[in-house]
Computed example of a mutant assay.
Amino acid sequence: MRKNLREDKGSFKFSWLLLGLLMLIITCTGWSQENRSFKIFQFPADKIPSVDGEPLDWDMVPESYAVGMDELWEDSGKHSAANPDNLDVKVKVGWVKGMSRLYFLYEAYDDYWDFSLPGLQNDTFEVIVDGDQSGGPFIDRFHPNRELDSMDAFFSFHGVHAQNYHIFTPAQGKEWTMVWGSQPWIKELPYANAAYNYDFKPGESGKLILEFWITPFDYAGNDPARAVESLLKENKNIGLSWAIIDYDDVQKMANNGFWNLSEEHTMYGNASYALPFTLMPLEPEFREELKADWSHKILNMNRRQVAFYDESEGEVTSWNWNFGDENTSEEQNPVHIYKKRGKYVVVLKITGPEGEARHSKVWDVVLK
């Protein structure tokens, strides 16, 4: 009797082990896209691209940053493989250190451009962005509370922690994008801008160049006063994905293909299916061999306690801080207490194999 009981327990454990293994295989298969990651090019501060529809500013961006048709899949089953005679798309993404902007260069050839109607039927570049990789659904019909009123879900949830830009390619007699959510203000200056370059008419073939930038938000509701922009910094990952919706007949409402960067069709409303894009440092040819830089934070105004942070670039072997009050430090990231109130000129000098560099800030440190 005990032997049979042990056998039953063993069989039960083995069944659960098999089930767990099966679930793991399914999960890994469904999330194989996690093996893919992409790069966002950092533009030097003196080479910020102009949004004018001319791609010359992007010539400095290596092709290793380009995402082409080989990374997309047609998830409606209408095409077994990409055909450049039908549709050929390449996308590059950029950023600038210190700015909350994502720059895009979209280059596309299509054998039939559909953009004559005023509504949604329009060749489309649909972009989702999740600036802090919070993940999860972000459109009203995917709200986990099924009892919530649809309009309440729209205003409190739709597009709030991740955003969807339904960009018309090209936009003729209409806004350049439909923001799928309750925050249409994010598609306008000072939060976004776009420019096109093309010479074809509806129904014709040709190449389109679309240049635009958007601002990613960790929180973007109906009221822009409450919005929180995403923090963009080097080596941080953000969530991005896109799809190209290709119409080939103005008389038909059905599209001729939904080309998706994500492996999940519903990425358009679920940020968990976005892919990681890394905000890259400057490419070597744009970096200074040795550059001194620093920032600070007042830890306690009453005690006049200030933390200083070295943000120098290059190989640094020594640091020399002059706090402007006849005190110095050779620490990389010192904390200093000032004895008197005042406005201070703080200087950081660094040395390394490439030489010396200095960076001063006049009256940035002000204590009362």
Score class of each variant (00 low, 15 high):
L231F: 11
L275D: 04
G173Q: 04
P216K: 11
I298R: 01
S295K: 15
I238P: 02
L279N: 01
S241Q: 12
A225M: 13
W176P: 10
E289H: 09
G239M: 10
T177F: 10
P190L: 06
N193W: 09
F258K: 00
N235Q: 04
M267A: 13
L232I: 07
I214R: 07
E175K: 15
A192V: 11
D199I: 09
Q172A: 07
W213E: 15
K174T: 11
K233W: 02
S182C: 11
Y273H: 15
E285L: 07
D248A: 09
S262M: 06
G221D: 03
Y247A: 00
G203A: 08
T177M: 15
A243S: 14
P276E: 08
L261V: 03
F200Q: 05
W294A: 02
L240K: 03
E264C: 00
A271L: 11
T278W: 03
N270G: 08
P224W: 13
I209E: 00
L210C: 11
Y196T: 01
F168C: 05
D246R: 08
N222Y: 13
D223C: 04
E234G: 03
I245F: 05
A227R: 07
Y191K: 03
E283A: 15
G203W: 08
S295A: 15
P216V: 13
Y191F: 14
N197E: 05
E234P: 02
M178R: 10
E289I: 01
E229V: 12
I244V: 14
Y273N: 06
A227Q: 06
G239A: 11
S205R: 15
G206K: 10
W259F: 06
R287D: 06
N255P: 04
N260D: 13
F168V: 06
Q183E: 12
V179M: 13
E289C: 01
A195D: 12
S241T: 13
N235F: 02
A274D: 14
Q172F: 07
A225G: 06
